[in-house]
Write a protein that binds this DNA or RNA. Structure first.
Length: 231
DNA sequence: TGATGGCCCTAGTCACCTTA
DNA sequence: TAAGGTGACTAGGGCCATCA
């Protein structure tokens, strides 16, 4: 099994429609699992005090919240949202890849340097780290999450009355997975794309044991069966 | 009165359920 | 069928309660 990353929808209407039969499922299992990075949160600090009022007055697409002491910047390329604190701490939210995130971090640091006219010294990014990464993937089969929860009660949390998905807490690398009966999995709390891959490679053989026909696919199959033969 | 700890809010994203 | 609400995750900051 291998994992590929993309920001485009692959399963949404692309390729042959998966069937409920195990034979056809196996065709999907031989292929790659397409993982989409939906959101990355990173933070870093700049070794200086930032005058947020001055920065706000000289920048476009910014909102200065004086009460909270934070400047919110909306970036178009890469599309993300940046929170800048007067202490020099910067949070970047909404990037789709680690490369984009790093690029945005450099752009913001450069922007602050130019706006505040600190061109006399080099602006160094300190303590840069990705603190949260959110990814999703869609498996070609449904998952019996109730049975999975019964089998792994220590690692999972499942409250069907509160939340439709089951939570799987992964310790090393640290990540939290939400597994749905439809086969869609959301990974949150990972700190790199490598960690997401490791977690998926760990979880795949487990969920495969509890596979079933997805509800929508099962309904479709049921519908097809009940439809009168036209030929 | 100052220090400390805990809670809540903010943003982004998704899938899913409920309600209109 | 469309819209609204929920939960997960992160960090920093604000606010409030408690204690010395």
């Amino acid at each position: 099994m291998s994992v590929t990353y993309s920001n485009d929808r692959v399963f949404a209407g692309a390729g042959p429609e998966p069937s409920t039969s195990v034979k056809e499922e196996d065709i999907f299992l031989d292929g790659n699992i397409d993982v989409q990075i939906r959101n990355i949160v990173c933070n870093y600090s700049l070794p200086m005090h930032i005058d947020l009022r001055q920065l706000a007055s000289r920048s476009y697409n910014v909102f200065y919240d004086r009460g909270k002491g934070v400047l919110v910047m909306q970036k178009r390329s890469p599309q993300c949202y940046v929170k800048i604190f007067s202490s020099g701490k910067v949070n970047i939210i909404g990037c789709k890849s680690e490369v984009e995130c790093k690029k945005a971090a450099r752009q913001v640091a450069r922007h602050i340097q130019v706006i505040l006219e600190r061109t006399d010294r080099t602006m160094k990014i300190r303590n840069y780290r990705v603190c949260n990464l959110l990814a999703t993937c869609k498996l070609p089969f449904g998952i019996k999450i109730e049975e999975l929860h019964r089998q792994y009660p220590a690692q999972t949390e499942y409250e069907p009355e509160l939340m439709v998905g089951m939570i799987w807490k992964h310790e090393n690398p640290k990540a939290s997975l939400r597994i749905h009966t439809t086969g869609s999995i959301t990974i949150a709390g990972a700190s790199s794309e490598i960690h997401v891959q490791q977690v998926l490679e760990f979880i795949y053989p487990i969920v495969y044991e509890f596979r079933c026909a997805t509800r929508s696919l099962a309904n479709r199959a049921k519908k097809r069966k009940s439809e009168p033969q036209r030929r």
